[in-house]
Design a protein around this nucleic acid. Sequence first.
DNA 1: CCAAATTAGTTAATAGATTAACTATATCTG
DNA 2: CAGATATAGTTAATCTATTAACTAATTTGG
Lengths: 179, 179
Amino acid sequence: MESVDEPGEELDFWSFVRLANDKLAKEHGFRYHLATEVVLTLNRVANIVTYDLEAAVHRPRGRSWSAFRLLFVTWLAGPLEPKRAAELTGMSRAAVSNLVKGLSSDGVLDRLPGTRDGRSVRLSLTDKGAAEMVELFRVHNEREQEWASALTDAEQRILLMLLDKLITNRAQFDVRGRN
Amino acid sequence: MESVDEPGEELDFWSFVRLANDKLAKEHGFRYHLATEVVLTLNRVANIVTYDLEAAVHRPRGRSWSAFRLLFVTWLAGPLEPKRAAELTGMSRAAVSNLVKGLSSDGVLDRLPGTRDGRSVRLSLTDKGAAEMVELFRVHNEREQEWASALTDAEQRILLMLLDKLITNRAQFDVRGRN
DNA sequence: CCAAATTAGTTAATAGATTAACTATATCTG
DNA sequence: CAGATATAGTTAATCTATTAACTAATTTGG
């Protein structure tokens, strides 16, 4: 048993979640402790996996997680406009603009004026960039597989279905997204 | 059908994931596309939910997402040391140290020398901080529930189980975490 | 029992991302 | 078609978080 004065002494994140649920329900009378647990856990898992991929795969090869995401969408969905790249990666247009500076001076990304609109820009990978992505993604994908292989294929599909369902519902209320 | 030259024209994130899987498998011969989809989706969902909670609940009340997380663990697991707060929230010790400055000057957090060790510090909420958390968490919890209610209780439990399983596996390989 | 190594916490330097403001182009409408 | 409005992209200011370096206290082991 934990002492009452020192509830934190043996906690890791997972036992904290249990403690939190307990206190929220019993001491504070909050009702939606399952929702709290879902949000806490979702965040935690996503952060751990992302941090690991960035630290194990991308930083050692000189790329940030954000740079990887931008290269990834440009690789597979490019050529594309910065605005769309921002939507697909979930970052701001300003972040894309700043990343493009570095990546094009590294010679992995091309930034050309768009054809159908005097304001627009088209981002695409250079040959060097495409070659880098093939190699980078090979390592990234191996690491993703190490993570995902904790679950069976069927479980991964269920997880995807549940995450899809969670996010699809957001049309129903006024979700705050980025500009 | 999409044109080959302009694959990005009608894409949102979800159709991008399908396109990405297709190209990764067919054009590049990558094997673990289900793993890729799991990682992409996990990240995306977590980011959307977090961004919404921060924008709808915390920023309007003058708190960042990080500040909320620190107050939350201090509220439920406190008093506790900064090092443990960093572990429970998943942020660096330096981030905790910086947040503590602001929150204690706002009068919601107390920072007292620890008893059993000359280096240690104990963080706890002030009465004002505890009152703020009760109100803040009430709103936060309502919003969490709006999100989570896209799933039935049973589905939420399955999601938690799968996320737990995913993360529990990490002992099996050399996962990179924060200091 | 003291020197070396470790640990808690803070500070410094830097990097990265956000919002807001700004420029230039495009579209809408009266 | 002219003025107002909206949109794409960049830039500026700010904020936040990170890693690394540092201080101080504690523990370890020869």
